[in-house]
Design a protein around this nucleic acid. Sequence first.
DNA 1: TCATTAATCGCAC
DNA 2: GTGCGATTAATGA
Length: 256
Amino acid sequence: MTNKRPLTLHKNIEFKNSTKAFQDASCISCVNSSCLINQNLENFSNVDFVAHKKTLKCKKRQQFIIEGAPVNGLFFILRGTVKVFRTGINGRQQIVRFAKEGEIIGHRGFGTEEYYSIGAIALEDVVLCYFSKDDLQEALLENPKFAYSMMLFYANELNRSESKVKSISQMTVRERVIDTLLYIYRKFGNLRGFLNLSLSRKEYADYAGTTEEQVIRIFSTLKKEKLITAQGKKIGITNVQNLKNEISEHNYFLDF
DNA sequence: TCATTAATCGCAC
DNA sequence: GTGCGATTAATGA
C-alpha cells in the first residue's frame, strides 16, 4: 500500500532547520524511562548515535508529520501527547492511535517505505527526539537488545492494530465509543476524577470510527446511565467495570 | 470582554 | 445511523 499522495499543506508546519526548534536534550541525562533508547543506552558502543539526535519542540495543534512526506527518521516522544492519524474516505480523519512519552512515531515508514502513510499532530506542547534513519539502522544492527525491544514494540503495535480492525468492523457504535473511552482510560489514566487527556468529541469520533454527533448522543445516554460524567472536554469514567462488561464479550485488549 | 470554536439537539433522510 | 443547521456553552486572545 504505497501512499504517494501530494503533501497536504497545513497552516502551521515547521520543523526542519528551524533553529529555534532545536535544543539539546542529551539522552545521557534523560529522565524518560519509558523510552526504548534510554532503556538500552548502556548497550550502545557507538555514542555518535545519541549525539546525532535532534530535539524539537512542537506547540499544541502543530503538525509535525505530514502524510506523504518522505521518511528520514523516527520520532520519539520525550514529553507530551500526540495523535496519529491518516486521511480516509471523503477526507475524513481516522485516528490511528494516541501516543504519549516514550512512544515512537513514524515507525511504519521505517525500512522499506519511502513516505509517511500517517500524519501526526501535537495534542499539547510536545518535545520530540528525532533520530535519522541511518543512525537508527546502524544502532539496530549493532545492538541486538535494542533491536529486540523494537521488535516487541512492533509486534505490540500490530496486535493492537488488528484488534482495532475487529472493533471497527464488528462492534456497534456504542461499543466502539465505550472501547475508545476505555482505551484512553487505560493508557492515560485518571486525574482528579477525569480522564487525563482531554479530547474533542470529534477526536473521539475519529478514533471510534463514527461521527461527532454519535459520540455526543452516546455520551449523553452514558451520562444518564451514570456510567460517565462530563464537564466540557473533561470526561470522567464513574464505573469502569460496567463499561468493561459491556464490551468484554468482544474482547478487551490491554495495551499500553 | 468579545469573538471564535466546540458541544448539543432536533429533524429529515 | 448519518448529515445539516440552529442554538447554546466553552474557550481563548
